[in-house]
Design a protein around this nucleic acid. Structure first.
Lengths: 348, 348
DNA sequence: TGATTCATTGCAACCGGTTGCAAAATGCGA
DNA sequence: TCGCATTTTGCAACCGGTTGCAATGAATCA
C-alpha cells in the first residue's frame, strides 16, 4: 500500500491479538503443530509446516514471547543496568550493548539507576518481575553489591567496566585500572616530565583508587620525579575544570594524568582559560578515549579502553552463564593502549 | 549479612521461582487471595492481607509481571525505538526517557535501529512479540513510516523529535524546525551579519529541510543580506569539519547557521584549524544545545531544544494513548530559545 | 434473635503458549 | 503385502498469574 495522497478512510489495520489458536484453526491443525513450526528443531512434517506458515502469514501472526517464556523459562530479556547516563562514553556503550544483544536474539531491558541509589533491592525486584534471563551491570562507579545482589537472586550477571577482585562472586569484564595507571605514569616519565600529578575523580571510587595506585607505583621507580595528587568532586567537566583552576593558582605540576576523559577536558579547558596551552605549558593524559577526545579542537592524548571487546565479552559471558548457571565467576581484563594526540609533549 | 572477609562457604542464596501458589500455601489461603493482595483496589480483608504479606516476605516473593500480563493485557513495557546512538544529545534523551518511564512504573525495552534500516517490519515484530503497551520513536532522522507501522500494528505510539505534519497519523512531539530556522536567521540578522549561510546535515532529512526553510524565510525579508547554503554528508563532527574546511577555501560567509551542534563543533574546529577564530572571523550558531556545547573550550552559541519538556510530553502522550487507544493523534511543539555563548558576535 | 446486606473468599476457567506421552501415520525392508 | 521402526500428531496438563461468579462469613438493622 503506497502513500497515495489523502486517505481519509484509511482502514484501521489493527490485527491485534492473533493467537496460536487462531492460526491452528485456520490451518486445520492442532495448536501443538503450530507451536512446533515456530520452535527450532521440533518435529513437524514439511506439509503441516507449509499449511501453518501460510495461515500464520495470512493472519499476520507472531508468537507471544512472554507467554512462551512461562513454559520455557526463557524470556530472552537481558537487564542492562547502569547509572552512567552522563558519561559520553556510555552512549557508545549503550549502542554496542543493545545492538550486540539484538544481534543475538536478546532484548535489552534498561534499568537506569539513580547515582545516589545504594540499595540494590529495588532493581532486583524489577529484574525479577520481568524474569530477565540475565543482567549486565555496566558501570565503573556502581558498588559491587549490585551485581552480587542480582546473583544472589539467581540472576546470571556480569559486571562490565567493573573492578578486578581476586575472589570474584560475579563475572567481571573490564580493564586493569592499576596497569592503566602505571601506563600513564610510564608515558609521562618517557616524555621527560619531572613534576607530575594524578588528578582523580571522587576518591572513594575503586577505579580511581586503582588508577592512582598504578600511577604511583610507576613513579616510585623514579624517585627523582616529583609526584602529587588531588581529586575532583565528580567525573565531570566542571569538576575537572574547577580542580585544575585551583591547581593552576598554586604551583602546578608539568603534566597530569586525569582519571577520565571528561575530567581531562575540563582540566584542559581550565588550562586554556588561564591563557596557557597544552602541551606547551602543561601536559595532560586522559583515560577512556571517548568520541570527543578525538575532535581536533580537543585533541586529547589519552588511554583507550577497548569498549567493543569489553562489551562483546560481557555479552558472551552473560549468555554463557544463562546456559550454565553454575559456571564459575571469571574475570576478563582487556589491555589498554595510549592514543597519541596533542596534549602531551612528544617523546624525547 | 555484612562483608565479613573470606567466605568460602557462602550459602547459595538462590530462592528462584517463588510463585503465587507457594505463598498461598504458606499463608493458608487461596491463590486468588494472594493475587488480590498484590492488585491495587481488589477486595481483601486486612487479616488475610497481613497473612499473605507475611508469607510473601518470608519467601521473598515478587509477582511475575509477564504472567500477569497474559490476563491483564498490560505488560508495562514501553518500546523505546531509536537510531540516534551517535548523537551526544541522545545520552540525555535516553537518560530522561528511561528515568521518566521508570518513575511511572513502566519499563523501557530498547530497540536500536541500524541507521540504514528502512523497513519497520522487523521492529514491529520485536515490539509485538514482547507485547509492549506502547512505543516511543525517538529520532529526528527516522522516516515517519516507522511510527506509522507501529500504529498500524495496534501499538500506541508517539514520535518524539519528529516532524510536524498537518494530518498526523501518530502523535508527534518536538520542536518547530521551521521556526527554529527562522530564529537562527533573525539572530544572525540582528547581529548585523551581511553575508550568512546555512550549513545543514544530509539534505534529505526533513528536519534539515525545515530548518533551511525557516532560515531562508527570515532572510527573504532582508534582501540586502547575501545568503547561501550547503550540506554536510552527515550530522557528525567530521562532516561538519570537512564541509567548513571546503567553505573556508573559497569565499566563506560571515556567519553560519549549522543544522546541529555536532556539525557546528566540527565546523568550529575547522575554523580554528585554519587559524581563524569565532566570532572574530566567522560566526556560528548551532541547534540542540547538547552538553558539550556549554563546555568553556567549545562555548557554542546555539538554539536550545527543550529536551525535558519534549520527553515529558512524549511519555504523557504514550500513556494517554495506552489508556485511550482511539485518542486522536496530536502534535505538540515546544518553543526553542537562543543560548548566547561565544561563537557569534554580540548584538549591535 | 432472625432477616438482609455487603464484604471476602475460593473455585474454576482462562490468558497464550509448550511439551510429555501415547496414538496415528508414514517409511522401510523383506 | 506385511511387520516393524520411525516420524508426526493431538490430547491434555502445565507455566504463573487474574477474574467472574457463586458461596461463605460478617455486619447491620429491626
Amino acid at each position: 500500500m503506497a502513500h497515495n495522497g489523502l486517505n481519509l478512510f484509511a482502514k484501521e489495520t489493527v490485527p491485534v491479538g492473533v493467537t496460536l489458536k487462531d492460526v491452528a484453526e485456520k490451518a486445520g491443525v492442532s495448536t501443538s503443530a503450530v507451536s512446533r513450526t515456530f520452535t527450532e528443531g521440533a518435529s513437524v512434517s514439511p506439509k503441516t509446516r507449509a499449511k501453518v506458515e501460510r495461515a500464520a502469514d495470512a493472519l499476520g501472526y507472531s508468537p507471544n514471547a512472554l507467554a512462551s517464556s512461562l513454559t520455557t523459562g526463557r524470556t530472552k530479556l537481558i537487564g542492562l543496568v547502569s547509572n552512567n547516563f552522563h558519561n559520553p562514553l556510555f552512549l557508545e556503550v549503550f549502542d554496542r550493548f543493545t545492538r550486540g544483544l539484538q544481534d543475538r536474539g536478546l532484548r535489552p531491558l534498561l534499568v537506569n539507576l539513580r547515582v545516589d541509589e545504594t540499595d540494590p533491592q529495588g532493581s532486583v525486584r524489577m529484574l525479577k518481575q520481568y524474569s530477565v534471563d540475565g543482567a549486565i551491570v555496566a558501570s565503573s562507579t556502581l558498588p559491587p553489591a549490585f551485581a552480587e545482589a542480582y546473583r544472589a537472586a539467581g540472576i546470571p550477571v556480569v559486571n562490565s567496566f567493573g573492578r578486578f577482585t581476586t575472589a570474584p562472586q560475579v563475572h567481571v569484564v573490564g580493564i586493569d585500572n592499576v596497569a592503566c595507571g602505571r601506563m600513564a605514569g610510564e608515558t609521562l616519565i618517557a616524555r621527560g616530565y619531572k613534576r607530575v600529578a594524578f588528578l582523580g575523580g571522587p576518591e572513594q571510587a575503586t577505579s580511581t583508587q586503582d588508577r592512582a595506585l598504578g600511577f604511583m607505583a610507576a613513579l616510585r621507580e623514579h624517585p627523582e620525579i616529583e609526584v602529587t595528587s588531588s581529586y575532583a568532586a565528580a567525573y565531570s567537566f566542571d569538576a575537572g575544570r574547577v580542580e585544575m583552576t585551583k591547581l593552576l593558582m598554586a604551583n602546578p605540576a608539568e603534566a597530569y594524568f586525569c582519571g577520565d576523559d571528561v575530567l581531562s577536558i575540563g582540566a584542559l579547558s581550565a588550562v586554556q582559560e588561564a591563557g596557557l596551552t597544552c602541551p606547551d605549558n602543561i601536559g595532560i593524559i586522559g583515560l577512556n578515549d571517548m568520541q570527543m577526545s578525538g575532535w581536533q579542537n580537543i585533541n586529547l592524548t589519552t588511554i583507550r579502553q577497548p569498549v567493543a571487546e569489553i562489551i562483546g565479552a560481557s555479552i558472551d559471558l552473560v549468555i554463557g552463564t544463562v546456559e550454565d548457571p553454575k559456571r564459575h565467576p571469571e574475570t576478563r581484563l582487556f589491555p589498554c593502549r595510549v592514543i597519541e594526540r596533542g596534549t602531551l609533549r612528544p617523546q624525547r
